[in-house]
Amino acid sequence: MGTLNAPPTAARQTPTAASAAARAIVEIRDLSLTFQAADRPVVALDHIDLTVQSGDFVSIIGPSGCGKTTLLRVVADLEQPTSGSITVDGMTPEAARLKRAYGYVFQAPALQPWRTVERNVTLPLEIFGIAKAERARRAAEQLALVGLTGFERKYPWQLSGGMQQRVSIARALSFAPDMLLLDEPFGALDEITRDHLNLQLAELWRRTGKTCLFVTHSISEAVFLSTRIVVMSPRPGRILDIIDSDLPRERGLELRESLRFQEIAARVRRGLKEGHSYDD
């Protein structure tokens, strides 16, 4: 399981104990995606190979324009790859989308301002045709999970940015998908709120055991949350390094002070630097 792909700079592969018994949920082989821009084609993804095991928390980190969001959108069947292959839970991304295999959390909460918090959480359930009583039950359950019990009747504008993003996570969890795709969900929040939500997300992942694919441009966020960190570089979007983290599954903020945390963070930083991503 350790030989997922061998990027030139990634020599060490240390699979975690958890992933040894797991199965591959996302398998990406030699995948490329080229956008046809007005003047010239833009290579957003260049020969990507990546496998995500069930129960893993995989972070994709890289500077702006490295294709990390595009990669997540390909998994979600929101973008079509130009070449290469991808399977999600053994199916095409489209089949996986139709089977509601994943919940997607965007950069912005994308809540509907005309719906209450509760009815925002039940929006996917309405679309799936789930009965009203069951919808209410699941909304209460998910809102409790993200610590928003008591806010059911509020409207989004009455909530802070961090609370809105927690509603959007509850919404993604409401139909119990096996996998969460998170696209810089805390990118727009202040650092204090961010720390708090990272802690909540880590706890949520540990309790539910869901597979998480998490896009970020914060090194400490990536190291804190992940079992595996994928380092990408821009122009063209390539994977530079894949780092397996052996940090314990149970994580508190003090973990960030530990030596092992610092070592992993340093390796991520080295990877990002090798991408020459800040030179141009």
Partner: peptide
């Protein structure tokens, strides 16, 4: 984003 979200719900 809301349109993308609806698409993820098929």
């Amino acid at each position: 984003l809301a349109l993308d979200l609806m698409r993820t719900y098929s």
